[in-house]
């Protein structure tokens, strides 16, 4: 449904996106995740036919975004981050204008406008002026505007930006409802937004694709940070091997890739046993067998947040695809 091949976009000396390639199948809900300035908006603008790429090509619904821009625009619903709406219009007038722009007949507009307004929960406010709406309501009207032509592809740039937590939950629910009926691309720099609604994530960093895959796959492949945490009574209480010895015993367990130890202020020592699978049982048995005084034994699964932070902060990872 959406294909980007070696997309690049420069603004003078600034490289906004650099050699970006990905494919999105029909019906997928994909999240574009990245820190501010990562190139998310630029990519979405190229896909929406607003910006031309400096190099590379992209197609949406089988049409080239540059050469067949008009066809592309007929097949997309695009909600920009700024939620552009005419303030002097009433909500239903704004949607009527959008319907006319997309060539919907009077009958189609009459049928579809109340339907999409009901879907985003503003049907009872349809006579209200856009200029008098709260940010959350404007966002919903913006979504209704994007949905009105019943597009195959929905491109939503930071759809929850500026909303309060309750409004965010509402918008998330709405996007989740759209899954399956439309191909949806959602961009955000707020990780929980993407985690909540997008099974597949594309992480952008400095204009490059840093990771692409389902959340689970990304965490599994790139995670590395999943670990069992073991807190053992301090130095003096560990009979025999000492801290280094404990680490060595833990490293001997099958599936353990690394063990880090941290001395805690209260005399305990924490061991972080990196492993891809939950090894609490094995670590517990070892502790029993060795007679260590254990205060905590817990399993901490790597999260997308840790992965995102690593990519955003380190900015050195090679692009990773997990075959999604």
């Amino acid at each position: 449904m959406i294909s980007a091949s070696h997309l690049s976009r420069r603004f003078g000396p600034l490289v906004a996106i650099d050699d970006l390639s990905f494919e999105i199948e029909a019906g997928e809900v994909v999240g574009f995740l990245g820190p501010n300035g990562a190139g998310k908006t630029t990519t979405l603008r190229i896909l929406a036919g607003f910006l031309p790429a400096s190099a590379g090509s992209a197609s949406v619904a089988g049409y080239d975004v540059l050469r067949q821009s008009m066809e592309v625009r007929k097949h997309i619903g695009y909600l920009a981050e700024t939620v552009p709406l005419y303030r002097e219009h009433r909500i239903e007038e704004m949607l009527d204008f959008q319907g006319r722009l997309h060539g919907l007949s009077r009958k189609e507009r009459k049928l579809r406008i109340p339907k999409v307004l009901d879907r985003v929960g503003v049907l009872d406010r349809r006579r209200q002026l856009v200029g008098h709406l709260s940010r959350g309501l404007r966002q919903r009207v913006g979504l209704a505007t994007a949905l009105l032509p019943d597009p195959e592809v929905l491109i939503l740039d930071e759809p929850t930006s500026g909303l309060d937590p309750l409004q965010r939950i509402e918008v998330r629910r709405l996007i989740q409802d759209l899954a399956g009926q439309h191909t949806v691309i959602v961009s955000s720099h707020i990780l929980p937004e993407i985690e909540a609604v997008c099974p597949r994530v594309l992480i952008l960093s400095k204009g490059r694709l840093a990771a692409d895959g389902s959340q689970e796959e990304l965490v599994r492949t790139l995670g590395g940070a999943s670990h069992v945490r073991l807190e053992v009574a301090g130095h003096a209480a560990i009979s025999g091997p000492g801290i280094e010895g404990v680490s060595a015993r833990l490293r001997e367990l099958p599936g353990v890739s690394e063990v880090e130890e941290h001395s805690l202020d209260d005399g305990y020592t924490a061991f972080e046993v990196s492993c891809e699978v939950d090894l609490r049982r094995e670590v517990g048995e070892l502790s029993n067998h060795e007679g260590w005084t254990v205060r905590e034994l817990s399993w901490r699964k790597a999260t997308l947040e840790e992965l995102f932070a690593r990519i955003a902060l380190e900015l050195d990872s090679e692009p990773v695809e997990t075959g999604a």
Partner: peptide
């Protein structure tokens, strides 16, 4: 400036 041009130019109009 307010983004409405982006809205128009991503609609199917020249």
């Amino acid at each position: 400036r307010n983004g409405l041009l982006e809205f128009l130019l991503t609609s199917p109009v020249s």
